[in-house]
């Protein structure tokens, strides 16, 4: 029934329903509005996805509708659609990731992402990436390309997904990527934990952030944002979460992101997850992200579920503000601040 609802919702939006920016950004907590930025969204096209990933997406639909997932996916991942979902959720700014994962989720090339985020440069922020599947042959070329890509319009960070790119987290061959991150001041989003996508490597050396510790120590000027905080989404378990949290406690240059914990798959572990973050006293290092856009309404649903979990588990408004926007704005040098709030800050309002 849910998949049919998704299909109908997609059709309705295709027909012409679009959302305007809300009168107030963010979420309302006890009468106070808290700004929200979403670190983690995706763009792309159906044609640039490998067959295994296409099948996974298409299998969300009833048999009779599977044919439709190509055009629906292309529509869902275009920047206007992302902005529409953000408006619907009250989210002001969002990171949008380039991808070079031909084994798993496919390609969203750097120039493609730069062009897409520049359609809404005040609200979409690009993360460059690099191809690693033939690293012994072309690493110099790939690093040069990454260096070019981080300077493209709209690019604010770097995206890595070792488990998708078939690289161990302790593989020192890609330390050049971390050096570029430090040199250009572009924080890195690094996927940790598992993933339900076919072709993903699930073993600990690809999923457990503890394997990144040497790289973190050797690159103190680079910012490592541990995506999903080690959440083992394949098994719906917090398998690697404590090791990720420990790194954020131990190192100034390590941050955490809770992408996908607010999704339906995370409902049994989200309370434990937000409690572990609070008890570890690392909320000043947590940057909200969703791993959207996935399907119509996903950004809003993920945000509502995550906020509800924080409320259920005793987060203060100030703690929620840190997680939902303040840490993002601080790490990304003011990005994610709506113009009216900049004006208010300038006038001391």
């Amino acid at each position: 029934m849910k998949t049919i609802s998704i299909m109908l919702a997609s059709l309705l939006v295709l027909i012409g329903c679009s959302s305007e920016p809300p009168p107030q950004w963010g979420v309302e907590i006890e009468g106070e509005w808290i700004l929200v930025n979403d670190l983690h969204t995706h763009t792309g096209t159906w044609d640039m996805m490998p067959p295994g990933f296409q099948n996974r997406l298409a299998n969300r639909a009833p048999d009779a509708f599977r044919w439709s997932f190509g055009p629906v996916t292309d529509w869902l991942l275009n920047p206007d659609s992302i902005i529409s979902q953000m408006n619907n959720a009250g989210i002001y700014g969002a990171g949008v990731f380039a991808l070079y994962s031909p084994h798993t989720t496919g390609l969203a090339p750097n120039d493609f992402v730069s062009e897409r985020v520049m359609t809404h440069p005040d609200r979409l922020y690009g993360f460059a990436s690099f191809r690693a599947d033939q690293w012994n042959l072309d690493s110099a070329e790939r690093l040069a390309e990454l260096e070019r890509a981080v300077q493209l319009p709209g690019m604010v960070g770097i995206k890595l997904a070792h488990a998708h790119q078939q690289i161990r987290l302790d593989d020192e061959r890609i330390y050049g990527v971390y050096e570029i991150s430090a040199r250009y001041g572009k924080p890195m989003y690094i996927h940790t934990g598992s993933s339900p996508n076919p072709g993903t490597r699930y073993e600990a050396p690809y999923a457990d952030a503890a394997y990144l510790e040497d790289a973190i120590k050797k690159h103190p000027e680079a910012i490592f944002i541990l995506g999903h905080t080690g959440y083992d989404t394949k098994n719906k378990a917090l398998t690697f979460v404590d090791n990720a949290i420990e790194l954020a406690v131990k190192y100034d240059n390590v941050y955490l992101e809770p992408g996908a914990l607010g999704a339906e798959r995370g409902e049994l572990v989200i309370d434990d997850f937000v409690t572990r973050l609070k008890n570890a006293n690392v909320l000043s290092k947590v940057i909200y992200g969703s791993d959207g856009v996935q399907m119509p309404g996903y950004l809003k649903e993920h945000l509502e579920n995550y906020v509800a979990a924080m409320e259920r588990n005793g987060y203060t408004k100030e703690e929620m503000r840190q997680v939902l926007s303040e840490n993002f704005i601080r790490v990304f040098g003011g990005l994610g601040t709506p113009p009216n709030q900049i004006a208010e800050a300038d006038t001391g309002a």
């Binding site: 033939q134 012994n136 042959l137 078939q166 690289i167 161990r168 302790d170 593989d171 061959r173 050396p205």
Partner: peptide
């Protein structure tokens, strides 16, 4: 020790 498949292939020229 500790090297996965992509560390070996394709080999360096």
């Amino acid at each position: 020790n500790c090297r996965n498949a992509s560390w070996f292939y394709p080999p360096a020229p």
